[in-house]
Design a protein around this nucleic acid. Structure first.
Length: 463
RNA sequence: GGAGGGGUGGCCGAGUGGUUUAAGGCGGCGGUCUUGAAAACCGCUUUCCGGGUAACCGGAACGGGGGUUCGAAUCCUCUCCCCUCCGCCA
């Protein structure tokens, strides 16, 4: 009796453990995902092609929606016919089995089944070709801009929706650019970086290196301890499927560094591996919103920007960044987008860096975003506004491509919304700190929040 | 890098060519019983594509691709991932 109940109790405990683990692990279960056209919402094209065409036109995309519709209709017709034939073949094959098990002659139905099989194979070849065309067409369609995104074709049409801080008053001396300051202080060695790798790379030295590390650590500490994000540390090399999930492939391959001997790419941002963590999975609504943050190095060929901003560290091929990523329900993504943007702004405010928030116009947004705010910080040496964060709501665009869904409380399966934003990109923040906090004697005042990370130092360059 | 073993539903686990429309168990949901609960018993339990206002109907999926066959979870082939051992290595 005692033994039995003990055994039972143990069993219950084991079961409870299993259940607990299953619940904890549930976001990591992989759903079956194959052969689907999860690129652009084909249903929207079927039901409201005009709306789609107008929205995409706002983004300046040349998209032949009519051609997509035609492909889709042909595909559906062939699929229906193929399924009917499979249905018949299944019945005939079953008949063959029945006849044979009774020792009869099944030559007739076998021949019919064979003929059906040949026709099915033909149709499948056609379907595969149609699928490929449709997939390619859909993968190249951009996301639709949200309704509150202004019209426009370029940076001039973006709207400044917020500014914070006063531009630094550097009186009595001519403010230097970071490349001069950094070199004189011995914390930035761009010449040797060029020797190692070419132009567009950086070499931080001493307090410069420590400042980079401090920024990364402080960003992560704020995101995790104060803003509720869970820190992850993902791979910097990912495969083509992952790059396709967030949208970098197939359209922007020339922007990516690709390995020669393995089918892998260097990530241009942590957004890629972090968003794809839940690729092909179904999350629970109770786990949303899911907030992740990650530090990674970022690698960009900047092929389209060759020759631009070649001086200094404004545009480089490799840089460090802390990224925020959110997975939300469709109902909350708008509100989470505002919060995420505020998370990034909070960092700039505490660093004392003046910034402005731009609402990007439809034509200036990235291909995948539905709505995007850029945060630009003012740098007194180069006398320019530098983009340090881009906070985007991708609605269900990436979720569809990466097949990231969630189960609602009443059991329905829907696509999540994904969002992300830098929090923050290191080099341009580094630039702004150097240029804005420079003193007449060439030293640089370290923002108070970073001092605990800088060994308590108040200035870079003071003995 | 070499050798071997393995990948089946939310989980565990049967299944080596045709009543598998994937056994059985666990978990979960609903119900019966009960003052309530537990137990017991009964039922349900995935995702995708196509059709339909819907109920529902048809098709697909046993890591992935290709093949053999009238018919494939099952046979062949390539590939990915996991485990064990050996080698190498931060």
């Amino acid at each position: 009796m005692l033994g039995a109940s003990k055994a039972k109790a143990k069993e219950t405990t084991e079961t409870a453990k299993e259940t607990a683990r299953a619940t904890y692990m549930s976001p990591l279960r992989t759903a079956k995902a194959k052969g689907k056209k999860n690129m652009f919402d084909i249903n929207l094209i079927r039901t409201d092609a005009d709306k789609v065409a107008k929205a995409l036109a706002r983004k300046g995309a040349k998209a032949d929606i009519a051609a997509v519709r035609e492909l889709d209709e042909r595909r559906r017709a062939v699929v229906t016919e193929r399924d009917d034939m499979r249905n018949r073949r299944n019945a005939v094959s079953k008949e063959v089995g029945k006849i044979k098990s009774q020792g009869g002659d099944a030559a007739g139905p076998m021949a019919e089944s064979k003929a059906l099989g040949d026709q099915i194979k033909e149709m499948e070849t056609e379907i595969a070709a149609l699928d490929e065309q449709l997939t390619t067409a859909l993968l190249l369609l951009p996301n639709m801009p949200a309704d509150d995104v202004p019209d426009g074709t370029g940076a001039d049409d973006n709207k400044t929706v917020r500014t914070w801080g006063d531009l630094p008053q550097l009186t009595g001396f001519e403010p230097q650019a970071h490349w001069d300051l950094g070199e004189k202080l011995g914390i930035l060695d761009l010449a040797r970086a060029a020797k190692l790798s070419g132009s567009g790379f950086s070499l931080f030295v001493g307090d410069g290196s420590r400042l980079v590390r401090s920024l990364i650590n402080w960003f992560l500490d704020v995101q995790t301890f104060e803003n509720g994000y869970t820190e992850v540390f993902p791979p910097a090399l990912v495969n083509a499927k992952t790059m396709t999930g967030t949208g970098q492939l197939p359209k922007f391959e020339e922007e990516l560094y690709k390995l020669r001997d393995d089918p892998l790419y260097l990530i241009p941002t942590a957004e890629v591996p972090v968003t794809n963590i839940y690729q092909d999975e179904i999350l629970d609504e109770a786990d949303l919103p899911r907030l992740l943050t990650a530090y990674t190095p970022c690698f960009r060929r900047e092929a389209g920007a060759a020759g631009r901003e070649t001086r200094g560290m404004i545009r480089v091929h490799q840089f460090d960044k802390v990224e925020m990523v959110k997975f939300t329900t469709p109902e909350t993504s708008g509100e989470e987008h505002e919060k995420l943007t505020r998370n990034a702004e909070g960092l700039l405010e505490r660093l004392g860096l003046p910034y402005r928030r731009l609402l990007l116009c439809a034509g200036d947004m990235s291909m995948f975003a539905a709505k995007c705010y850029d945060l630009e910080v003012y740098a007194a040496g180069v006398k320019r506004w530098l983009e340090v964060s881009s906070c985007s709501n991708f609605t269900d665009y990436q979720a569809r491509r990466a097949n990231i869904r969630y189960r609602t409380k009443d059991g329905k399966v829907r696509l999540v919304h994904t969002l992300n934003g830098s929090g923050l990109a290191v080099p341009r923040v580094f630039i702004a700190i150097l240029e804005n906090n420079q003193q007449a004697d060439g030293t640089v005042r370290i923002p108070e929040v970073l001092r605990p990370y800088m060994g308590g130092k108040e200035f870079i360059g003071k003995k």
